[in-house]
Every structure is written in C-alpha cells, then in structure tokens.
Design a protein around this nucleic acid. Structure first.
Lengths: 238, 238
DNA sequence: TTTAACTCAATGTGATCACAAATATTCTTT
DNA sequence: AAAGAATATTTGTGATCACATTGAGTTAAA
C-alpha cells in the first residue's frame, strides 16, 4: 500500500465546530511546517485522504490552498509535493524574511502600548523557560507567537500572510537551525527589541529583529552545514 | 435571478489545454484585479458557476485559491467577497510594496545582463507608446511586466508571489490611480532604474523603484482624493 | 541484454447528489 | 402596523461517480 516512504502525520482530534477541510488544512500545514513530509515526496489526494480518514474532497481543497501559499508545489504533471530546498533559495527566503519582518516591525511600532509590551515580555519569559527545558518545538512555536504578536499590533497590517508564507517555506529548516542553536550562547535579541520599543526607536527595533532572524539561522553562514542539512532532507530522488 | 448588483465579467475563450479550474481562476483573478467585482459584494459559488457556465466544482477551487492569495476574503458566514478598502490599509499595502519590491530589485541586480536590460528598454518603450495612445489598461499591464521582468532576473527569487498578492489586493485602486496619472507630468522612473542597473548601483535602483511605486499612487498623498476613490467603490453596504 | 510497444492500474479533474446551516420570506400575533 | 415566529429557499460542505490522462509494469522484438 505504501509504495514510497510512508507518511507519518501528527493527527489531532477534530473539533466539531471546524469544517473537515479546515482540519485537513491545519493538519497538513503542521506536517509541512515540521518536516513530517519529505521534500520531493509525491503526494496524492487519495493517499492523504486514506491516511486522514476523510473523503478526497477536503484534501483536494486543502492541497490547493497550501499550494497557493507556496507551502506545496504543483508540478507540471499536476502532482503535488513539498518543494525541494537549495542553498540559494534558503538564503533568499531568509533575506526576504529580514526585509519584510523588519518593515512590519517598524510599521507596528507606533501602535505598541504598555499592555502589548507586557504580553511580549511574558512570551519572552516563556521562551526562556522552554529553552532551558530543551523543548525546541515549543521554543519554535513561541518564537513565532512573539513575532506575530509584534507585527499584528498594527491593526491595518497587511504583511502577516506574506510572512507566514515565508515561515511555511522555511518550515523544517528553521527547526533544524533551532536544534543547533542551543549549542551556542544566544544573545537575547528579544530583549533588545523590547528596549527599542520602549524608546520608540524604529531603527534599533529593525536591527534587533534582523539580528534575531539572522542568528536563528546563523549556521547558514557556514555553507557546508547548510548543505548537509539540505542533503539530509533531500528526500526521494526525482 | 440577479438579486444584487449584476456581475459583469470579461470572458475569454477557454484554451483546451488548460483545466476548467485554471480558466475560472484566471477569469476571476482578472475580474478582481480590474475592479469588475465591487468590494463587499457577496459572491456565491452557484451564481459564479452560472455566469461562467461551468459546474460549481471549479468555482469552489478557484475561490479558495484566490482567498489564499488575499484577493478574496472569507467571512465568518463562509461567504466570499472582495475585501473592502480603507485609507489606512491602502497606505499599508503601498508601503509593503515599496519595502518588498525595492528589496527584490536589489536582489535581482547582480543577475541582470545586457539581454535583459534590452528587454527592459523595449518594455519601457512600449509603455511610452501605450501612454501616448491613452491605453491605460495596457500601461498597467506593461508596467507590471516591467517590474516582473526585473525581479525574476534573480533565478532564486522567492518574493514574486508575495508581490503579486499585493498587486492583486491593490487591484482596482491602482487603476484608479493610473487614470489620474496622465494629468500629471510623469518623470520616467523606469529610465532612472535602468541607468542605476547599468551602474550596478543598488541603492539608486531601490530609490528609482520606490519613486516609481510612490508616484504611481501619488494621489494617495491627498487624503481627500483617496477617500473619494474608496467611497466610490465602497460597493454594497453591509 | 536492452529497448520499444503495449497493457493496466492509479490519479487528477469535474459533475452530480445529499444534507445541514444560514438566509430570506411569509404568516401570525400583539 | 410592527415585531416575532414559522416556513421555504438558498448556500456551502462533503461524498460518490465517471472519464481522460499519466505512470508503472510487462511482454515481445532486436
């Protein structure tokens, strides 16, 4: 039945208030983001439907939506797969993150009040705890929450969907990066960011965000490490 | 049959080599981009299917894809509509364009060779011609082609889908802006951009792109004009 | 042994149907 | 005449089926 590498996806209980399509979408999105589906692995509607125990219809819609967000790639054959990563693409994704997220941060700055700043501090504290406990998955999630909370302070903000698309594309590779991070001493860029917020210093905030992103992927500075990661997750050969 | 405002969509002949879903997607995308569907107007699958003379299935998929690109908005009721525009959102979209597109331009610069530069020059000539003939629709399309050609010079580029999403959201409002543009004397920022390219001057290129975008929406500097545009296309009241 | 042609299973696309929720309409009551 | 309740209609969601195309597997010829 499983001709290629078997797919192991984290299944969550489906909330009745949510449509099947939405549940499938969230499930697949989580799987892609966490590298549970190897890049290059061909996905078929019926196979996923069978794994998730739903009819093919919701899977079709979820796949199309993920493809529209660049989380999946539709080949000419109309086959769907997780896009393969290259070193150059990885660099472009990171630089795009820096450009867009530092912009989003600066645009959000005028809207950040004391309440939100407290929330950010609390998130930062939770991140430190998770880091001490070595719960890298939690660190990754909380880190995203930190960035999201910052950018969405701007009520007219329009870039978050674009940013989330980049996160999704970096997906498994951010995790690999994170797993190497605890070996290094890590300057707390979040603290620098919050100090910049207190001073309403947009430039300092942008630099803190930039540094945070760049250090989160610091290993990309050593091409051989990045290459080994990419090779490691190269997945099925074409 | 047509309870609300009737929808007039530009219908093109469907190429046999293209799937119905793709054709519906392109058709609806063009309609949204050109403001043929009023913001706030509720769209139903069956109504569109009837207009386009296809079954509901391809319409469902196309709508979902457009929603994933932020071209359409799914309300809580699971109804779909073209998002309404606000002055603040308009500003945010334009600033996002500047941030991302100037970044994309700088990233593309090292890859631009003489051949591509010639293509850009030719596109610029075509734009001038269309402008003289007052063909604003053509100007708009060619202008997009110019920007696209520039950014895609970078073979590892990842931001074009994000940029296209912004174009789609600005959609009809860019056209409104363009229609007001011929009244002003327009500095040819494209020429400035190409001179910067020849000099391999990234900063000058970014400034030219920024100016090009900003002037394309110069009327946004006068809030009352922008407001009247938004009111004008406010569409169906909620 | 290799390659080309043929066969057959698997897949994506699209149509149709059923159903429950949401919306609009009509009817009743005050 | 106005407001609330009951009914009817419309709509999105999801399942199932049919069909053309793609890809794999097999056989036969060189």
């Amino acid at each position: 039945m499983d001709k290629k590498s078997p797919i192991k996806i984290t299944l969550t209980e489906r909330d009745e208030s949510v449509t099947i399509t939405q549940w499938v979408y969230q499930t697949l999105r989580y799987a892609v983001m966490n590298g549970q589906i190897l890049p290059g692995r061909a996905l078929t509607i019926r196979e996923l439907a069978s794994i998730l125990d739903v009819s093919p219809m919701p899977v079709r819609e979820a796949l199309r939506q993920l493809a529209a967000e660049n989380a999946l790639e539709i080949q000419g054959n109309r086959r769907v797969m997780v896009p393969r990563m290259t070193a150059m693409k990885f660099t472009e994704l990171c630089e795009a993150r820096i450009a867009i997220e530092s912009h989003a941060a600066a645009r959000a700055l005028p809207y950040i009040d004391a309440t939100l700043l407290d929330q950010l501090r609390q998130l930062d504290r939770l991140i430190d705890e998770a880091q001490e406990q070595g719960d890298l998955e939690q660190v990754s999630i909380l880190n995203q929450n930190f960035h999201r909370a910052l950018y969405t302070a701007n009520p007219h903000q329009v870039t978050l969907p674009l940013i989330e698309s980049l996160w999704l594309q970096l997906g498994p590779f951010m995790r690999l990066a994170t797993s190497k991070l605890d070996e290094h001493y890590l300057v707390d860029r979040h603290n620098e960011a919050m100090q910049a917020i207190e001073r309403k210093d947009a430039l300092a905030l942008q630099m803190a965000i930039t540094a945070d992103i760049r250090e989160g992927i610091a290993f990309a500075g050593t091409p051989e490490l990045l290459h080994s990661f990419i090779e490691q997750s190269a997945g099925v050969t074409a």
